[in-house]
Each structure stands twice: as C-alpha cells, then as structure tokens.
Amino acid sequence: MNLNAEKHSQLIKKKAEKYGFISCGISKAEFLEEEAPRLENWLNNNANGKMQYMENHFDKRLDPSELVEGAKSVVSLLYNYFPEENQKENTFKVSKYAYGQDYHHVIKKKLRMMMEELNEEIGEINGRVFVDSAPVLEKAWAAKSGLGWIGKHSNLLTKQRGSFYFISELIIDLPLAYDTPVTDHCGSCTKCIDACPTQAITPYQVDGSKCISYLTIELKEEIPSDFKNKFEDWMFGCDICQDVCPWNRFSKPHNEPLFNPHPDLLDYKKEDWTEITKDVFNEIFRKSAVKRTKYEGLKRNINYILKD
C-alpha cells in the first residue's frame, strides 16, 4: 500500500468530518462497467420522461476521466438533511430536502473550501467538486466507495442513517486508498414499492416519468391526468418511499442552520398555500430549491391536487 495514499485518504476523511459531512468514502476513478447497461436500459425504456438531459453525456456519466483529466479517485461524501420538525398535518407537502437553503450552493461552498485546504496541505491537486449538477452517477459512486447500498427505491441506504442525505463528490487526480462496497440489506422488504401511489418503483429502479418528484419539479408542461388523486398532497417532490423505509427510523436531525425551514413552511395549512402570492412564495423559498419549480409551477401542482 502506498503510504502517501493512505495518509492523504485519512486527511481527506478528517476534513470531511470538519466540514460536517456524516461520512466519506473513496473509490478508484474508473469506467463504471456495471452501470453502463443499466443506464442504457433505463433510457431505452423512456424512464427519464422529459428529462432529455439524461440522454446527454452518456460516456461522462460512466467515466470520471471524461470530467477530470487524469482522474485517479472519486471521493464521495454524505451530508445529512433530515429535519428536526416536519410540516403540520393536513397541508400540501414539500420534500424534506428542500426545507432550507438550496443544497447545491451550501454543499458546493463547503467542498470548495475543503479543496482549498487540501491543495495547501498536499500540494496542487487537479480536480472538480460535484453536487448533483453534472453528469455524475452519484449513487453508484457512493455505493462503490462503501458508503451504503442502493435500495429497492434506488436511493442510497445506510444502516446507521437511512437515506435522508445529499451525496456529493470530489473527482481528483490524486491516488488514494480505496474503500470497498457494503452488502445489500433490503432483504425481502417491499415497503417502498407497495407505498408508491403512482407505482413508479420496481425493485432497484424508478420510472422517472411516473415519479411524483419528477411530475412536480422536472415536468414543465401539464401533468398527465393518469395521476389524478395520486399525489397524496405532495406539491414539491415526494418522500413517500423514504418515509416508509424501515432503515429511516435511524435518521437523526441535521445540525446545519442553513437547512432550517422558514417558519411559514412548517405552519402553513392548505388554505394558506392555495392563497399564496408571488411575493410570499419568494419570501418563504428565497434561497430554497423550491424556486426551481417557480411560483407558477407550485400553483400548477396545487391546482392539480385540488382538482377532483
């Protein structure tokens, strides 16, 4: 074992802890051979719906050296977003990951600071930071680096924490000590599959075109009538498959102040949401990922739920 690789790996994991990441795993930057046919089948089945961007950069999604020249290692990191408090009962629901400020910005800032420190302490590292904003198969890399296994709902799962966390990566040209994958612990459980109101989940795969998260966020046109009365009051995203997962009983509240919600988000009832104005929308979701759907998109989702 290269002693430097071991030493640098320990340093990276220490930095990850310093910046609040709940875990960090490292895998060798190589072509994701097993993922290639899976991704191809998923696209061939039109499971990406209208997410045309998923068809782009096929090679980049599978080969990290296409994203960072001379890439040697993929460092995967998990950041907890499980909230201390949830929205009230009998309201239109927002996925927990969007309660606070947009995770793209919050986590990217931490990763950039981390990279700066690593450059100072190790020497010049060529690399890039990624937070769900480039063609990177994040869950595949996280599983490869031993951070958890991909569950039947296609989210990364850990025995200690469940699945309510963001995944991000550093792809760097530094050789490191590599971690090994963990085993699958879903067993015969099918709770996520059984609970999905739109039947978007088959074991280990989600048909994006049927997923409530896709329909309320990614789909920019009219929502098909096939999903009438199936949204279970979700107006932005959906957490059903995670909420029912037995492993999520181990989720612990995050301690990231930037992920704390605007008080109105927790207190609003259905009638408040139906009357929401553009100004109030901009205030409640000022720095939130909910801004992706825009005021008009949120109103469209609410109106769709309200129609008989």
Results as ranks from 00 to 15, higher is better:
E89F: 03
G70A: 07
E34G: 11
K14S: 15
I107Q: 02
F21E: 08
E40H: 13
S76T: 12
N46Y: 12
E85L: 15
F31E: 00
E66Y: 10
V75W: 05
N46T: 08
V94T: 10
Y97C: 04
Y99P: 01
S27E: 02
V68P: 00
P83K: 06
R38Q: 13
N56I: 10
W42G: 02
Y99S: 02
A16Q: 10
N80T: 08
L67F: 02
H104N: 00
S27F: 00
A16I: 14
C24H: 08
K88L: 13
E17S: 14
E84P: 08
Y79E: 13
F21Q: 13
D132G: 06
N80Q: 06
Q10H: 14
N86C: 11
H105C: 07
R128K: 15
L32A: 13
Y79V: 14
R112D: 14
S23N: 15
F130N: 00
K108M: 14
E117R: 09
K13I: 09
G49A: 02
L118C: 10
F21H: 12
L111Q: 02
F82T: 11
C24F: 07
L78N: 11
E120R: 14
Q87G: 09
K18E: 15
E40A: 15
Q52I: 12
Q52N: 13
Y103C: 05
V129Q: 09
L39Y: 04
I125C: 09
G100Y: 03
R112C: 03
W42T: 03
G123N: 03
N90L: 06
V74M: 12
Q101G: 13
P37E: 03
K108T: 11
F58A: 01
D132M: 08
L43H: 02
D63W: 01
Q87A: 08
A47T: 01
N56P: 04
F92R: 04
Y97M: 04
V74I: 14
E66T: 07
K14G: 12
A36C: 09
E30V: 05
C24Q: 10
N90R: 09
L32S: 12
I122H: 00
D132T: 04
N80R: 06
L118T: 08
F82Q: 07
D59L: 13
P37Y: 02
E89I: 06
N80F: 07
L62H: 03
I122Y: 00
N90H: 07
H105G: 06
R128M: 14
A36N: 08
K50W: 04
I12G: 10
E30Q: 12
T91H: 05
K88D: 06
S76Y: 05
K93N: 11
